[in-house]
Design a protein around this nucleic acid. Structure first.
Length: 228
DNA sequence: CCCTGATTCGC
DNA sequence: GCGAATCAGG
C-alpha cells in the first residue's frame, strides 16, 4: 500500500484526533502500526504522549550491526550534527509567571485577541458564511472515545460516503468518529477549490462574527483535546 | 504478558 | 520514503 493523499489525510486526522497508531493502522488497513508511526513522524506529526520518550538516559548500541559507524563518539560538538533535534527544547512555558514581576515590560507579547470584534459578516469564496468563535460551541464537548472500536463494515453506511468514496469532488467533512459503526463523510459536492461543501466550509473557515447569529450544532472533525 | 510511541537503519 | 525490528515506559 502506498501513502496516498487520502490515506495521509486519514492518518493525520486520526493521529491528531488521538487515535492510537494501532487503531489508525487498522482503520487504514494494509499497513502496520509501525508504518503508521513511521509515517506520522515523517510527516512531522509526532508529539504525543508516549510512554517512553519521557526519559532520557544513555542509549548504547542499537541492535543488529553496530560496527561501522562508531567514528567519533565523544568529541565535543564542534560541528553540530545537522540532524537530530529532540532535547534542546526550551520554549515550553506552560506557566506565565515571569511576566508579572517586571512592571515595565509586556509591551507586545500576546496581543489580546477577542475583545471588540467589529460586527463583520464575511463570506468565503464559495459564498459560505464565515462563522465567528462566538458561534462555535467552545471547545469540543463530545469528546471522542478514547478507545476506538475496530472498524467493521456495516450495512448502515452502505449508502454513505466512506473513506474509499472520497475524491476531490466530495466533501470530506467527517460525520461521527472513525471507528464508529456509522462513521462516514459528508459526501456533498464540494465548494469548488475547497475540501468541503459550502456548509462545512463555513465551519472549517471561521471569521469574526457578532455574537448573535447562531448557527446549527458545532460538530467537529475528529475529536478534541487528547486527555490521557 | 499486554499495550503504547520512538528510534534506528537496511532497503 | 518506507517500515520491520528494536527499544523502553506503563
Amino acid at each position: 500500500m502506498s501513502w496516498t493523499e487520502e490515506r495521509i489525510a486519514t492518518l493525520t486526522k486520526m493521529w491528531e484526533g488521538g487515535a492510537t497508531a494501532s487503531e489508525i493502522a487498522t482503520e487504514l488497513g494494509g499497513v502496520s502500526r509501525n508504518a503508521v508511526i513511521g509515517k506520522a513522524h515523517r510527516l512531522g506529526l509526532k508529539a504525543r504522549p508516549s510512554p517512553v520518550k519521557a526519559n532520557e538516559k544513555k542509549k548504547a548500541a542499537k541492535k543488529k550491526e553496530a560496527a561501522a559507524k562508531p567514528a567519533a563518539t565523544k568529541p565535543k560538538p564542534k560541528a553540530p550534527a545537522p540532524k537530530k533535534a529532540k532535547e534542546p527544547e526550551a520554549p515550553k512555558p506552560a506557566e506565565p509567571k515571569s511576566e508579572e514581576a517586571s512592571p515595565a515590560n509586556a509591551s507586545q507579547p500576546m496581543p489580546d485577541k477577542r475583545e471588540d470584534l467589529p460586527k463583520i459578516v464575511s463570506y468565503g469564496p464559495g459564498g459560505f458564511l464565515r462563522q465567528g468563535p462566538g458561534d462555535q460551541q467552545a471547545p469540543i464537548p463530545p469528546a471522542p472515545p478514547r478507545r476506538l472500536v475496530p472498524a467493521k463494515p456495516d450495512p448502515s453506511i452502505a449508502d454513505k460516503t466512506s473513506l474509499l468514496d472520497l475524491n476531490d469532488r466530495v466533501c470530506r467533512w467527517p460525520m461521527g468518529h472513525p471507528g464508529e459503526p456509522d462513521f462516514h463523510f459528508c459526501g456533498e459536492k464540494v465548494n469548488p477549490g475547497f475540501p468541503y461543501c459550502v456548509e462545512h466550509c463555513g465551519r472549517a473557515y471561521q471569521a469574526q462574527l457578532p455574537r448573535g447569529a447562531r448557527r446549527p450544532p458545532p460538530p467537529l472533525p475528529f475529536g478534541g483535546p487528547r486527555v490521557r
